[in-house]
């Protein structure tokens, strides 16, 4: 496992067709989202009621929504929020979950036992349950949705890191490091972590796409992003009551979510194939929001 060096990972993966398609596809949306930080065709905070439901035209490539906001600009900003929520939730999961998993694997015994049980407990908290608690206490919002998804990610990354670390611990070079007098923690972070890095990247891609779906679900029931901010999930929710009259308003954000998730997933699949075909069975479950 994880025999590939980090620098080579990308290059090798590039020759895998599904990685290439997935990577280019998600890259396209990520770039659009990043551009929206600095520039969008129109300012989405300015509403223009007189110009609502405008059809696609040169001025508005995808038309305007029920407030007369430019759909291209809305999709860019919406994708930005969705990505930020999903990416930061992954970051939360990694920063807390990976050390958790490494420590559990390194020390074993009672520490491993306690950490693993805590982890099992967290695993019983699909994002929606954490989101309910957080919303009950602090009210709804994109940041709260991110934390809720992040809590679930902690459990996922801890599990992956622990599993990866345990299998690498058997290898000889770890014994060598131990003999040279290195402490457990130092070994974990210096030798084990770099070797499970690619494993974590694959998992990150899975959690990223789940995060985007979870954000959409939470926004749909009102526990996620709140206006005047927008996200793909919120756009979908707000447009749905217009579906029979102006279907594009809902189809565009819905399709964007579907495409982003598919692209990230097939990129992840490709990456997984390249890393180790046997890894492919380590499917992760849908957090379903």
């Amino acid at each position: 496992m994880g025999k590939l060096k980090r620098e080579n990972l990308f290059k090798t993966a590039w020759f895998h067709p599904s990685f290439r398609i997935g990577f280019l596809g998600s890259f396209f949306f990520i770039i659009l989202a990043i551009i929206s930080i600095f520039w969008t065709p129109y300012n989405i905070e300015e509403l223009n009621i007189a110009n609502r439901f405008a059809p696609a035209s040169f001025n508005h490539l995808l038309g305007t929504d029920f407030f007369g906001r430019d759909m291209v600009s809305m999709l860019m900003k919406g994708a930005l929020t969705s990505f930020i929520v999903a990416v930061l939730a992954v970051v939360i999961g990694m920063i807390i979950g990976v050390p958790f998993g490494l420590i559990a694997a390194s020390y074993g015994g009672i520490i491993d036992n306690i950490l693993s049980k805590t982890n099992d407990f967290l695993f019983a908290f699909p994002a929606i349950i954490s989101a309910i608690i957080i919303t009950a206490i602090f009210g709804p919002g994109a940041i709260n949705a991110m934390i809720a998804i992040g809590i679930f990610n902690i459990a996922v990354f801890a599990r992956v890191a622990r599993g990866g670390a345990l299998s690498i611990k058997m290898l000889q070079f770890i014994d060598a490091a131990k003999l040279s007098g290195m402490g457990e923690l130092k070994i974990a972070f210096k030798h084990i972590l770099p070797n499970i890095f690619s494993l974590l990247i694959v998992q990150a891609s899975v959690q990223l796409s789940l995060g985007i779906l979870a954000e959409a679900g939470l926004s749909y029931i009102g526990f996620g992003t709140q206006p005047p901010q927008t996200s793909l999930g919120l756009m979908l929710k707000e447009a749905q009551s217009f579906f029979l009259i102006h279907p594009t308003l809902a189809i565009l954000p819905g399709l964007t979510i579907v495409l982003i998730v598919i692209f990230i997933n097939i990129a992840g699949d490709g990456l997984r194939d390249v890393l180790d075909p046997r890894l492919a069975k380590e499917e992760t479950l849908d957090a379903a929001g």
């Binding site: 905070e45 300015e46 509403l47 009621i49 407030f67 009210g139 709804p140 709140q226 206006p227 005047p228």
Partner: peptide, 28 residues
């Protein structure tokens, strides 16, 4: 309220009043 608030925020911005929108439930 929710839609109206966004529109009013957009209108008041024209005269320099920046409104922060806070969505609340009825109990709140």
């Amino acid at each position: 309220a929710r839609r109206g608030g966004q529109i009013i925020a957009s209108q008041l911005r024209e005269i320099g009043i920046e409104l922060e929108l806070i969505n609340v439930e009825w109990a709140q």
